[in-house]
Amino acid sequence: MIETTPWWWMSVALAAILLGDALLSIRPPRFISDCLEGVGFPRDWWWALVAVKLLAVAGLLAGLVYPGIGAASAMAVAGYFVCAAVAHVRAGFLGQSFWVNCLGMLALSIVVVPVAYTI
């Protein structure tokens, strides 16, 4: 059975960061659009990233009541950022956005799963 730990607030922090990222991605500032263009992500699909991030936020917050959903959402967020890291490496787009934003969010999402949930 999956349960939350006293560190449940880490999943809320991840949700808050993802919410901010999703809201910024609606009308992406230069650093986000440069990143998406740098990895070759089609502009016609940028809306899908907003939807995915908002669904992840909903799942992480639902995890406060249903820990299994929160743990699954945190794992999915980690998977999302693994895919983002692979896209950066494949495109050779290894600037600051890769090292700080992409790998930083990957590290945070990987830490949330074992720290915020007991599996």
Score class of each variant (00 low, 15 high):
G92L: 01
A87H: 02
A76R: 01
G68H: 02
L61N: 08
L54Y: 02
T5A: 08
L108D: 02
G95Q: 04
W47H: 12
E37I: 00
S25H: 04
A48R: 04
R30K: 14
R43Q: 13
V77Q: 05
C83A: 14
V52R: 05
E37W: 03
L60Q: 01
L60F: 04
P6T: 09
M1C: 12
I2T: 05
V12L: 11
W99V: 06
F31A: 06
A74I: 06
A87P: 13
G20S: 13
S109M: 08
F93Y: 12
S25A: 10
V39Q: 02
V89S: 10
L106G: 07
F81Q: 05
G104A: 07
W46P: 11
R27L: 10
A13F: 13
G59T: 09
G70F: 02
S33F: 12
G38W: 01
V82A: 08
W47P: 11
P114M: 02
Y80V: 10
A116H: 03
M1H: 05
F81W: 12
T118D: 15
L55W: 05
D34P: 05
L103R: 01
I32F: 03
F98Q: 07
V113A: 09
V50A: 02
G59S: 11
W46E: 15
A22L: 05
L49Q: 15
D21H: 07
V112F: 09
V112W: 03
G70S: 01
A91W: 01
E3Y: 08
A84L: 07
A78E: 13
A87R: 08
V12F: 05
P114W: 06
V113G: 01
I2S: 03
A116S: 11
K53Q: 13
D44W: 01
A58W: 04
V39N: 03
L14D: 00
A72I: 06
A78R: 09
R30F: 13
I17N: 15
G59M: 12
W7D: 03
A48W: 04
S33T: 14
I119M: 15
I69Y: 01
G38M: 08
L106T: 06
V77W: 04
N101A: 14
D34I: 00
E3H: 05
A13T: 14
R90A: 11
I69G: 02
Q96H: 12
L19F: 10
A84T: 04
G63C: 11
V52D: 06
L19K: 03
F81T: 10
K53R: 13
H88R: 09
A16Y: 05
